[in-house]
Amino acid sequence: MSKTCTIILIFILYSSLSPRTEQYITKQGKISFFSYTTVEDIKADNNQVLSIIDLAKNEIAVSMLMRTFVFEKELMQEHFNESYIESDIYPKATFEGIIQDFDSSIVGTQTKVIKGPLTIHGITKNVEIKTDIENTLGNYILSGEFDISIEDFDIKVPALLAPNIAKTISISFKFEYLPYEK
């Protein structure tokens, strides 16, 4: 009895302490968002998004600083940070998800759904994001597009600017991962 227990214990210890080679990271992930209205098109890019995937558990985490979004107009960037997303109070947007039915060993492109909580502007919503996962000889590229409603994240638009800012913002992302070494 105690022998089996010890074996199990050693096994768990080994598995939990063994170095993880199954993690892949990117520090230059790209996220863009678009707001299309008849009055104005607004686009912003962030090329400093951090993301990590753990293929052992099919988990993914994404984190970015809101202030690193670059807008075409400087003043828009200031308004975005100061009046809409309030990046002094909520500096980061994060996402944690689980890639559904994902087999990391398949080489080539597969489309999977990632489910998990997305936090923007201090508000967390569960989202499902359809993602193309490309596996090229051990390097992974994740890309996709999804929409969010600004109302869901309590981002208020003054009535005067309501025609300029879309109620639904489309977000596109592309992450190119490399093996993670601690």
Partner: peptide
């Protein structure tokens, strides 16, 4: 996982 990248 999220903490790991927040350190990066």
């Amino acid at each position: 996982l999220l903490e790991t990248i927040n350190k990066e």
